[in-house]
Write a protein that binds this DNA or RNA. Structure first.
Length: 967
RNA sequence: GGGUGAUUAGCUCAGUGGUAGAGCGCUUCGUUCACAUCGAAGAUGUCGGGAGUUCGAAUCUCUCAUCACCCACCA
């Protein structure tokens, strides 16, 4: 069945992908002929997500490596899967509910989670289908999910995946027991929209126009200080005024209700006598201790800074150092919490307390701010307002201002497990590419903060901790029982409480209880203990941090784990180096004491053609699926590969994709040409060749194979793509196809057979080498051209070298032929010789090389340069256009056509260029230091080049002289 | 405030010590039987400025300028 005129990407790509799947072509171990394994873990996309350009880029690169290794015979696993993506997914479901006017809290936790599982079933397959359209050759039979095995799991879409939930639970317990995880009351980033803690990384700073309010806090007990008001030229104070108040500044006046102190710098003479004394908090009359701490900057504002330890990270730290109380004055939704807040009430004067509570309790933080500012103004303790542009932390999902908030949360003590993750990269067990990203990685890890891993959400891995009362003090506690399952928790509790009490499960969060029963000996014992499961779930990145071992079946000692772990390569975007890469490094080391991967390849961002980040709100998003529909998956893949210069953002434009689509068409047509000329079905063996044309293209093929391998080996994807593009278009199509025509269509049967074999083999090599980048079109051609024992996806990657295939004599000969053709074409175009007109050619000097090359390639040269005949003459007649090539002086007698002025201009220009080049070369050669210190081959090469140029220049000068004779 | 990267043809970008490259765009020509999603020929660069190292610098060092991104608690 002959090839169709064009490649129908839409039809063929779906059909071919189905055929691959049908054949189990992507299964781990398929096509393995060597011992080595190769494993890539997909960065699991959100289960409700859909493919965007970043995914397309990321997965194209992975697929290139995976297909390349699979063809090379490695036991290859590309592990696919999806992430449950806690907040993001819960957000999607809550938004759906909101459409029906419902909220999460209208459901029980179990019912809500069931809804999320259903949502996952509905949308979870979307991204998989999209990855398949792209051509991703994942082993889908192993598709994993980060919540697999968790309560409510329907197993739809990840039927065979390992029990990831169990792995997460076991890791938590393991890290808990090793002391890497703890629960504590600390200030965390609180998202008032989702009403959950988030980690530092989920906070983004947004520059915002705001105000700085200066407030006057009266000093207690009649204290005063001298405030400088006038200075001389040297900055010395020349006048002061006595003040009985301190001016403090804040961008968030509402937090003043939680103030418990004022800090000044220890060396600040103005306030030295006040340290240890007190000020009065306006509105409620709470006494604020004045403390000395380095944090207070004497240069800023008045040098006195109010302390709100429960609502500001700096103030919290100062509070810890100086023993200030922390008073939480906010609700989880960032409203004011004043009523029934004993911490707040303590130390307040009753009238003030009542008034403020009446006015702002329950108000949103911003409304409370307005009231406080208004009141301060009315009462005269507002010192002033400055416009201020400052950074305000926002939740990266909710986009609302986050609130530093004091709650009980779970933390990974990252400092304890960060060491091996740093060392592994430092000593090269894991390589991060590009190198620049290593610094980013180190910088973050070396300054690591505790990682808040608890989330007050419902969708996620519920933290495997049960709380019970203290054995000796039933009112105390809670006592934590950390275990992977309820049964194991029961055992722990039994061990702790002894054989007496009945142990039950129930209760909420850290609430737990027990009945106390006095026995005769006076020792308190429980008759009944109720264990309460921790309600928080884990940060989604905690579970995805286990992706490498979890997908391979840990904690079971599976064959996959033994075979594929540590994995070989991770390909990911720079935006999740901290979120994911660093955490995987830390956690695999913490749990199994091993690196998760040998190499991390960090790629940059796909931007639009103007360099802007693609975003929905800007409306500049290129949808990879639309592009695939329009140009075909191969074109999109080739474009992304060709633009993947390491570490640089890529600007994607449709024009570029169209260009590479054309490249596919070009290859298709070359294959059609081969087919039409009986050049199909080349075997794996390099064919024998006698003709220079054939020997030359074999050498070129050897060179490109080496280039592709070297480039991919170094993760220089663009170089691999460029090399193939240049080879297929610039060598095979532009020259070899043309060269082959007289041979394929000529009389010499032996030569025809040889050329057919070489052409068939070369086309096959193009298909094989291009398969990792453009798998569809090449597979289609492979299957159509000739009988094959296996699909291209499993074809053997070649191992021949350039040295084996290259033929120096053939390269030289074809080089000569090419330059003659190019020079003749150039001269003809310049002289406006009609394109189709065959003209005679004359030769005055033609050396041995040239004569031999001409003799063997006469037909080619005549055909491609439109030459009628070659005749050796003693000298060129008037009106000859000179063609200067190495080792020959050729001329076209174009007396009738020639424009003397134009020919003169052409020669002068060429000569000018030559002379400039020669100047550089001879200047260099006449420099003794160059000759002494440059490598010998460089010097030789320079000499040879110069000699050639001189030769050519000589001929050009002669031609110019002849031209001068004409007129 | 700290850090990283970038600056090369009109545009988008390759190019880590040895005669400046590609794609697109542009100009001229071309329906030769693989391909007009094509072919041929062409024009366009003090490689951001300056200094240094070197026989030799787009490439290494320093510096300045501009841009981008990341990190950061500045009241």
């Amino acid at each position: 069945m002959p090839l169709s005129k064009t490649f129908d990407a839409q039809e063929a790509e779906r059909r071919i992908y189905a055929a691959w799947e049908e054949a189990g072509a992507f299964a781990a171990g398929a096509n393995a002929s060597r011992e080595e394994s190769f494993c890539i873990m997909i960065p699991p996309p959100n289960v409700t997500g859909s493919l965007h350009m970043g995914h397309a880029f990321n997965n194209t690169l992975q697929d290139v490596l995976v297909r390349w290794h699979r063809m090379r015979g490695f036991d290859t696993l590309w592990q696919p899967g999806q992430d449950h993506a806690g907040i993001a997914t819960q957000m999607v479901v809550e938004r759906e509910l909101a459409r029906d006017g419902k909220r999460r809290t209208d459901f029980s936790r179990e019912d809500f989670i069931d809804l999320v599982w259903k949502q996952k079933e509905r949308s979870g397959g979307t991204i998989i289908g999209q990855l398949k359209r792209l051509g991703a050759s994942c082993d889908w039979s192993r598709n994993a999910f980060t919540m697999a095995g968790a309560p409510g799991d329907t197993r739809v879409g990840h039927e065979n995946s390992p029990d990831f939930h169990n792995a997460v639970m076991r890791v938590f317990v393991d890290m808990y027991r090793k002391g890497f995880i703890y629960r504590g009351k600390r200030l965390v980033n609180w998202d008032p929209h989702f009403e959950t803690a988030i980690s530092d990384l989920e906070v983004e700073q947004v520059e915002t126009d705001g105000h700085m309010w200066r407030l006057r806090y009266p000093l207690a007990d009649g204290q005063t200080y001298e405030h400088p008001v006038e200075f001389d030229e040297d900055g010395n104070v020349t006048a002061t005024e006595t003040r009985d108040y301190l001016t403090v500044a804040t961008t968030r006046p509402e937090t003043m209700l939680g103030d418990t102190g004022i800090a000044v710098h220890p060396d600040d003479r103005r306030y030295a006598h006040l340290v240890g004394k007190e000020a009065i908090l306006p509105l409620v009359g709470r006494r604020l201790r004045i403390v000395a701490d380095d944090y207070a900057d004497p240069e800023k504002g008045t040098g006195a800074v109010k302390m709100t330890p429960a609502h500001d990270f700096n103030d919290w730290a100062v509070g810890q150092r100086t023993g200030l109380r922390a008073i939480n004055v906010m609700t989880p939704r960032a409203g004011m919490w004043l009523r029934d807040n004993p911490d707040f009430a303590e130390g307040c004067d009753p009238d003030g307390l009542a008034r403020v509570t009446e006015a702002v309790d329950g108000l949103d933080r911003y409304e409370a701010r307005d009231w406080i500012v208004r009141t301060a103004e009315e009462e005269g303790w507002l010192d002033g307002i400055d416009a201020d542009r400052h950074m305000v932390p926002h939740g990266d999902r909710s986009k609302v201002a986050i609130e530093p908030y004091l709650t009980d949360q779970w933390f990974v003590d990252a400092e304890k497990i960060v060491g091996p993750a740093i060392d592994a990269v430092r000593d090269g067990r894991t390589t991060i590419l590009p190198e620049a990203d290593r610094k980013v990685y180190f910088h973050w890890l070396e300054n690591i903060e505790p990682w808040c891993i608890s989330r007050q959400l419902w969708w996620g891995h519920q933290i495997p901790v049960w709380y019970g009362p203290d054995r000796d003090d039933p009112a105390g506690g809670p006592r934590e029982f950390c275990a992977a399952t309820e049964a194991e928790a029961f055992d722990l509790a039994r061990e702790y409480y002894g054989p007496g009490p009945e142990i039950r499960f129930g209760g909420e969060g850290a609430e737990s209880g027990g009945l106390r029963e006095a026995e005769g000996d006076g020792v308190a014992r429980f008759a009944e203990v109720t264990l309460a499961r921790e309600t928080d779930v884990l940060d989604t990145w905690f579970s995805s941090g286990l992706w490498p071992i979890g997908t391979l079946g840990w904690p079971e000692d599976t064959p996959e784990l033994r075979r594929y772990f540590p994995t070989d390569v991770l390909i990911t975007g720079f935006d999740i180096i901290f979120f994911w890469v660093a955490r995987m490094m830390m956690m695999q080391y913490a749990v199994v004491g091993e690196r998760p991967f040998d190499t991390v390849y960090v790629h940059a961002l796909v931007r639009d053609e103007k360099g802007k980040k693609m975003s929905k709100s800007l409306g500049n998003v290129l949808d990879p699926l639309e592009l695939i529909e329009e140009y075909g998956a191969d074109a999109v893949r080739f474009t992304l590969t060709a633009m993947a210069a390491m570490g640089r953002d890529l600007r994607l434009s449709k024009e570029r994709i169209a260009g590479y689509r054309n490249f596919g068409t070009k290859l298709w047509n070359a294959a059609r040409f081969a087919e039409m000329n009986g050049a199909v079905g080349g075997g794996a063996d390099v064919p024998a060749a006698t003709a220079a044309v054939n020997r030359w293209i074999l050498g070129e093929t050897g060179r490109v194979r080496e280039k592709v391998d070297a480039a991919l080996d170094a993760f220089r994807f663009n170089e691999a793509a460029d090399a193939l593009y240049g080879f297929v278009w610039g060598k095979v199509c532009d020259w070899y196809v043309e060269f082959s025509k007289p041979l394929l269509q000529g009389e010499d049967e032996e030569l025809r057979a040889e050329t057919q074999a070489v052409m068939a083999w070369v086309i096959d090599q193009c298909l094989i080498l291009l398969q990792p980048i453009m798998p569809f079109l090449t597979e289609e051609l492979w299957g159509t051209l000739g009988e094959r024992s296996k699909m291209l996806v499993h074809a053997d990657w070649p191992g021949y070298t350039a040295a084996e295939l290259a033929d120096e004599a053939a390269d030289r000969e074809m080089g000569w032929v090419v330059s003659v053709i190019e020079e003749v074409r150039s001269a003809r175009a310049q002289m406006h010789v009609p394109a189709g007109l065959y003209v005679p050619m004359l030769a005055t000097e033609i050396g041995e090389t040239g004569r031999a090359a001409w003799g063997r390639n006469e037909a080619l040269i005549k055909r491609l340069a439109r030459i009628e005949s070659l005749e050796e003459v003693d000298g060129f007649p008037k009106g000859t256009v000179t063609v200067a090539v190495e080792g020959a002086s050729l001329g076209l007698p174009l007396a009738g056509v020639i424009d003397v002025a134009e020919e003169k201009a052409r020669l002068e220009k060429t000569l000018g260029k030559l002379e400039k080049e020669m100047g550089g070369l001879s200047g260099r050669l006449s420099n003794p230091k160059f000759v002494e210190s440059a490598p010998e081959e460089v010097v030789d090469e320079t000499r040879a080049t110069l000699a050639l140029k001189e030769d050519e220049a000589q001929r050009l000068r002669a031609a110019l002289e002849r031209l001068a004779e004409i007129g």
